[in-house]
């Protein structure tokens, strides 16, 4: 884990702001500006993976039961999975209602 850029001084920045710990996007929480989140009714799920293919964030993965679930650390709440799911497993709810 590198130091968060919130705490870094100008002395500590790498040459040209180069990132040397490549892959550190994994530490970047993109889920904190989400206004709505997906909830699932897995009884209807046919495990087709269409949501996984369409997710622009690439934050959907298969769980132990074989269902596809978004990682809310990264999910921006765009609702593309809801729209694309052929069996209407996914419903978006607003964050205030969760």
């Amino acid at each position: 884990m590198v130091k968060s850029d919130k705490d870094m001084t100008w002395h500590e920045l790498n040459l040209g702001c180069m990132i040397t710990d490549v892959g550190n996007t994994m530490q970047y929480k993109t889920g904190d500006w989400r206004s709505q989140r997906p909830i699932y009714n897995f009884e209807r799920c046919i495990k087709c993976g269409v949501c996984y293919i369409f997710c622009p964030e690439g934050c959907i993965s298969r769980n132990d039961a074989g269902h596809f679930v978004a990682d809310l650390f990264f999910c921006k709440g765009c609702a593309i999975c809801e729209r694309e799911c052929p069996t209407k497993v996914i419903t978006m709810i607003t964050e205030e209602d969760k």
Partner: peptide, 26 residues
């Protein structure tokens, strides 16, 4: 730190308001 597959680096990435000022100061 040149671009090289054996020691990957990322150049020209995004900087938010937290760090842009520090980047310009440097």
């Amino acid at each position: 730190a040149p671009l090289h597959p054996s020691k990957p680096v990322a150049m020209g990435e995004c900087a938010g308001p937290n760090i842009y000022t520090e980047a310009k100061k440097q």
